[in-house]
Design a protein around this nucleic acid. Structure first.
Lengths: 193, 193
DNA sequence: ATTATAAAACTAACGGTATTAGTTTTGTGT
DNA sequence: ACACAAAACTAATACCGTTAGTTTTATAAT
């Protein structure tokens, strides 16, 4: 019974490794304990259970994503910032497929921390979209559209749904370009009225 | 041991009910057997196992979705057809949240039937998009964009990510309208060149 | 009607999972 | 040196999917 110096952080890190390398469904307390050279009940000294661990992973993922998005837009604005953020988003989902998946479907709230982290991401998107001077409703519609596009693209890419013989990267470029154009179009229409 | 007259179809139907009412993760051979008044090993007379059952559900879901999409575009073309198809898609995900979820992530192929069903949906989208005279690459990009938008929107809606106080329905309307506009824009640009 | 057969249900058992309870070890601060 | 709390452990429970082997039942052939 050599003490192995476990802590919440190490557990989460290892769980994320499993999730990203072997898939989210491979994250079990049993596999985790094996990888940490520990018996699975020992994990309960640090976590409440599997559901709770997954929520912790989710929180970790949201914060990591937020950081990546923040860095991506540094010193940029409008189209350039929006584009950079979009690319950073899908890059994150490719670097962390398993972590990203749990990020979208945390089992339970953690003291409002999950909502907070998620809100901060939305706030960042709002910050970028402010450059486009959309009215309140259009702003919300546009946020929802951007999130739908990014999440849908990432999710479908990961599930292998884009099988056709044309570069997925080229498609993403096309989609983001067109999305940005379409935002500009919104304002042109308001001006006509 | 009253014979209960089980068959593959009844099993799938019941599994779909559980998936839609209690969530996909509630679909277990144990819960399924309980609901069918049978012991779980009896299920193996009709299915190969849980993974196989989920693939069957996936196939059923893809076919149901395809039918719904086909019906939605009957007698329509271009913008009207595209819009109708988009609305039918999200309606399906709302009617069948659990079934839709498994539709996107079948565990294993069934004799190429899953790929075939999935291809047929893509073919239907192609059929609708033909009205826009896009070149081959733009066609594929646009298909991927539409699928991303629809799947992302549905997935985020189901996971409760659209929490802001503005009608989600209104946002969807906005997004589809803009997506359609953006397709028209593609061709305008080609003409300029 | 009787019976043979195959399908469809069953029971029993195994290995894997999460989780709880209770025990032992170990590091640390007094 | 020792007390104590934390961190590991073992043992046990309850569920899950799955397999093997058994019994029942519907049906088709005689």
């Amino acid at each position: 019974m050599v003490r192995v110096g476990l802590d919440l952080n190490k557990i989460i890190q290892t769980a994320v490794e499993i999730a990203d390398n072997e898939g989210l469904e491979a994250v079990t307390l049993a596999s985790l304990a094996r990888k940490l050279s520990v018996k699975s009940p020992s994990l309960f000294n640090h976590i409440k259970g599997l559901a709770s661990l997954k929520s912790e992973m989710s929180l970790y993922g949201l914060r990591l994503l937020l950081e990546k998005l923040k860095i991506s837009i540094e010193g940029k604005e409008q189209d350039e910032a929006l584009s950079a953020m979009a690319y950073a988003y899908v890059e994150f989902t490719r670097e962390h497929p398993g972590l990203y998946e749990i990020t979208i479907q945390a089992p339970e709230e953690i003291d409002g921390e999950l909502k907070k982290a998620s809100d901060e991401i939305v706030e960042l998107i709002i910050h970028v979209l402010k450059d486009y001077n959309l009215d309140h409703n259009n702003m919300i519609h546009t946020i929802r559209g951007l999130r739908s596009l990014l999440h849908g693209f990432s999710s479908l890419e990961q599930s292998g749904a884009f099988a056709m013989s044309i570069s997925v990267e080229e498609s993403f470029e096309f989609l983001i370009k067109n999305f940005i154009k379409s935002i500009h179009q919104i304002n042109k229409e308001s001006n006509i009225k």
